[in-house]
Design a protein around this nucleic acid. Structure first.
Lengths: 162, 162
DNA sequence: TATACAATATATTGCGCAATATATTGTATA
DNA sequence: TATACAATATATTGCGCAATATATTGTATA
């Protein structure tokens, strides 16, 4: 019984929204993992986008992937060993540039992505229906994020008289 | 330039909502940290609720705090050393039960919480105005979370024909 | 060509969390 | 009282991320 979700709101005024959105993120990851497990998909949920980008590129270095994903290349490099261990990708030195190592999906990786594809549409549809039920969280989070980047909490708080 | 927020949506259909809500959580934590820094509040943002619970209890063991917060007691125990190092709380053995150690706010901890209080109302107000601007994300995330706990993704996905 | 700089990959450290295992102490029950 | 169990605190390991530092290689410029 998690229940933390409900209690969180009353207990802590300052970061209730932060913890709530984290709970949503965690719940979605967990439930996606559950779905993948049931379907025999071994892809780490948090590496889906990396593999999608890699599939589209065909072949790419960590730095390229990082730029595509908007993540740090350190993070990409940190994830890759696990994906290699899972047999989803391989790593080759770039013959044209000794600094770079190129990643590529293996056959298994491609097969796994194909399995993921079959669920991808399904899941989009699930979310669409969910949003009809509860409202478009996606759009609203995006709007909130943009508002906060535009004008952060700091600027929205009047200076305190001490 | 993060920008990952925008690109995330197109790249990965399966967990776009997960990463978006995580981005919101992270943004809020970062901006709260920024606010605290500017105000001279040393409280770790993620320990606000712990300190709030402790203040209300006056004195409590890790297990009690964990129950109040809906977190694991391991997590509470892991956070406490940092709070002790910051001089915000102290730890005493429970004279009545040698298994337990009781935590209590120090004077500095109370002063810091008082500083946080001055911002607490402000921030609630900021969120209230933000929600007027962008809609009530809080309520909508809560609704989504409840819908997902009620009926997880797994159950919402029709069985695949393989 | 030599030198500075850019790009790339990588190691290390630390945070926050989850999961697991374990030691200690208290409590209930045979 | 003895024994099993519950409650509590804690250590250890691992994941995902950020931040920092560093080594290697390529590129541009003096």
């Amino acid at each position: 019984m998690p229940a933390s979700t409900d209690r969180a709101a009353d207990l802590d005024d300052i970061s209730f929204l932060g913890r709530l959105s984290e709970a949503l993120s965690q719940t979605i990851e967990d439930q996606t993992r559950e779905l993948f497990d049931a379907a025999g998909i071994v892809i780490p949920v948090r590496s889906c986008s990396l593999l999608t980008a890699l599939r589209q590129a065909g072949e790419a270095s960590a730095a390229e992937l990082a730029r595509t994903l908007g993540q740090s290349h350190q993070l990409v490099i940190q994830k890759c060993p696990a994906l290699i261990r899972l047999g989803l990708i391989t790593q080759h030195p770039d013959p044209a540039d000794a600094r770079r190592k190129l990643f590529r999906l293996t056959e298994k990786g491609q097969a796994q992505m194909a399995m993921q594809d079959r669920y991808s549409e399904e899941i989009s549809e699930v979310y669409r229906r969910l949003f009809e039920e509860t409202g478009d969280v996606h759009a609203m989070i995006l709007k909130t994020l943009r508002a906060l980047k535009e004008r952060p909490l700091r600027e929205r708080t009047p200076p305190q008289s001490r």
